[in-house]
């Protein structure tokens, strides 16, 4: 393997933003993330608030006075955001912008709150995968020899394991009240279990890439020189290997986020991921499909969650590609 170490070069940012499509992608992503982040402070109904009178209403939207019980609940769960919302908007709220579902819940609120969960799970799972993958690849690549062979063999084997199935089993096991209680005692709720599990099975490619980089770096002249000067293993890793890894890690991380978000959506779709009353984009997409009947087609329930997923994952993938190209001039033609 003769990977050219991807290193942070000057001008990465310049090359990145000069690429067509990157700027709009960045803007879209920033908007999505910002909206999800401030969702509790926006003048919208709560995502779980049902209103049978407006069930299955199409997109529209009108200002109205918010339900005081919901506001109270919001103040309990998000005191800071609730205060901000009361300051800016008072008790007014905008309901039904993207329509409502069959229980009369506001779709816009559900998409935004669902975005919080989907993005959070995506980020944390990616982080988990990064820690495991970088660690694994680093050790294998740096120590080399038999250990490397063994560790990479494990990765090869793991590629052929139907992880989806294992995850379903694992989640089924972890639904046990006794086990769940023990996990909660350790500070692990269902959501953390979810991103740990998703992250725990998404590190294989990262490990392979990092190992390749480390192998190449280990033989690089400046590392040999450091070794000749008497630097120890940990010091070489810290001072010379890690700083030269971040490029490839960042690129691959950007591409991992959409992958794990897809995985979360997949699991939630099957009813195995985020649990109601929690919302995620996977759950919304699944509910949207359920709403398609000959009696009446609530198209907005299919289109808007799909659009949210498409926008977010699409821009992430676009940025990942752009970042890879920007970091690796060899690929830039």
């Amino acid at each position: 393997m003769s990977a050219v170490p991807l290193r942070a070069r000057p001008g990465v940012w310049r090359r990145l933003v000069r690429r067509p499509g990157t700027r709009p992608a960045l803007v879209v992503l920033a908007i999505v993330v910002a909206l999800a982040a401030v969702a509790p402070a926006l003048p919208l109904p709560l995502p779980s608030e049902m209103d049978a009178r407006v069930a299955s209403a199409g997109p529209g939207g009108a200002w109205r006075v918010a339900d005081p019980v919901s506001l109270g609940q919001l103040a309990d769960d998000h005191p800071w955001a609730a205060a901000l919302r009361a300051q800016v908007f008072g008790d007014a709220e905008l309901a039904g912008v993207l329509g409502t579902d069959d229980l009369g819940r506001d779709l816009l609120a559900r998409v935004l709150w669902g975005g919080r969960v989907s993005l959070l799970v995506g980020l944390l799972a990616t982080l988990v995968s990064a820690v495991v993958g970088v660690g694994w690849g680093l050790v294998a690549g740096y120590v080399g020899g038999r250990l490397d062979q063994l560790m990479m063999r494990v990765v090869d084997v793991a590629y052929s394991i139907p992880f989806l199935f294992v995850v379903i089993l694992l989640i089924a096991v972890l639904r046990d009240e006794e086990l769940a209680g023990r996990m909660r005692a350790l500070g692990l709720d269902r959501l953390s279990v979810l991103y740990l599990v998703i992250g725990g099975i998404s590190w294989l490619t990262m490990a392979r890439i990092v190992r390749g980089q480390v192998l190449a770096l280990r033989e690089a002249p400046f590392v040999s020189a450091a070794r000749a000067l008497g630097a120890g293993g940990p010091r070489i890793v810290r001072a010379h290997v890690l700083p030269n890894l971040w490029g490839v890690v960042v690129v691959y991380l950007t591409l991992t986020v959409p992958r794990v978000m897809l995985f979360e959506a997949f699991l939630s779709f099957l009813g195995l991921g985020v649990e109601p009353p929690g919302v995620s984009w996977g759950i919304l997409a699944s509910e949207g499909l359920e709403s398609l009947t000959v009696l009446g087609v609530s198209w907005w329930l299919v289109v808007f969650p799909g659009l949210a997923l498409a926008l977010t994952l699409g821009t992430l993938n676009l940025l990942g590609d752009a970042l890879r190209d920007a970091l690796d001039p060899r690929l830039v033609r």
């Binding site: 069930a55 069959d102 499909l289 359920e290 398609l292 009947t293 000959v294 009696l295 009446g296």
Partner: peptide, 29 residues
């Protein structure tokens, strides 16, 4: 197995009987 699937089969005339239509649609039924 899917209750929406069953409802669609019924409404399209592929079947003559279905049990337990989705509760969310009860109002329109």
């Amino acid at each position: 197995a899917g209750v929406t699937t069953q409802l669609n089969m019924y409404l399209l005339g592929e079947v003559d009987w279905m049990v337990k239509p989705p509760p969310g649609l009860y109002a329109s039924l």
